[in-house]
């Protein structure tokens, strides 16, 4: 079969909904530009963390003292699985005429994302109990800034998901709601990419050194 040209990042609606597919290109491209700009924000926080985690320990706790690797692994798996389930939601949006599959996968994604945030808050709480508070050293300030910025993004994504579930109920599967869901999918997958950098360059590097 001849491959259809992709109009934009993420799953394209293609021939399943010609109208929405035709109007989607500039809207989703605009959001894609925002996501690239958002990556720049994270990059600056990574650069700050990279120098602070080595030079800014100020005699306080070191990364290996405070990082809980099994917990980071569980968080990684939760977020990765939520990315896959959101993929299933995108497939349901594109191919299933009823909203049942779509709502099921979105709710599952929401639960996995909420589990991720819960685990992360628990990690922060354990660190704070050990005296590893943001104001202790440059390393801890930049750690909390970087990881919590990602956490706030995920939390925003969760709220966004709730709002869209509500819109699905009220408006049904209109073009607007479909395009919003497709943008949320991009946002969600992008946050997973940022988390890949966090678990590698923050958690694994911190423990391996």
């Amino acid at each position: 079969m001849k491959r259809q040209p992709l109009l934009h990042p993420g799953l394209n609606l293609g021939s399943t909904d010609e109208y929405s597919h035709d109007v989607s290109e500039p809207i989703i491209f605009g959001f894609w530009v925002f996501l690239m700009a958002d990556l720049v924000l994270f990059a600056i926080l990574f650069a700050t963390y990279a120098s602070m985690s080595v030079q800014g320990q100020a005699g306080g706790p070191t990364p290996i003292d405070v990082f809980d690797l099994p917990s980071a692994f569980i968080e990684t798996m939760l977020l990765l699985t939520s990315s896959i389930t959101f993929g299933m939601a995108s497939l349901a949006l594109k191919y299933k005429a009823d909203s049942l599959h779509l709502v099921f996968w979105l709710v599952l994604t929401f639960c996995l994302g909420a589990g991720f945030i819960g685990m992360e808050l628990r990690d922060f709480w354990v660190m704070i109990q050990q005296g590893a508070v943001p104001q202790r050293s440059g390393f801890l300030s930049s750690f909390f800034l970087l990881v919590a910025t990602h956490g706030i993004h995920v939390t925003a994504g969760l709220f966004w998901m709730l709002v869209l579930l509500l819109q699905l109920r009220v408006f049904g599967r209109t073009t607007e709601v479909k395009l919003r869901l497709m943008r949320l999918a991009l946002f969600w997958h992008m946050l997973d990419i940022v988390w890949v950098c966090i678990f590698t360059f923050v958690y694994l590097f911190g423990v391996a050194q």
Binding site: P5, L6, P9
Partner: peptide, 8 residues
């Protein structure tokens, strides 16, 4: 994210 060489 389905980024590929075929992107429009």
């Amino acid at each position: 994210l389905h980024i590929s060489w075929h992107s429009h």
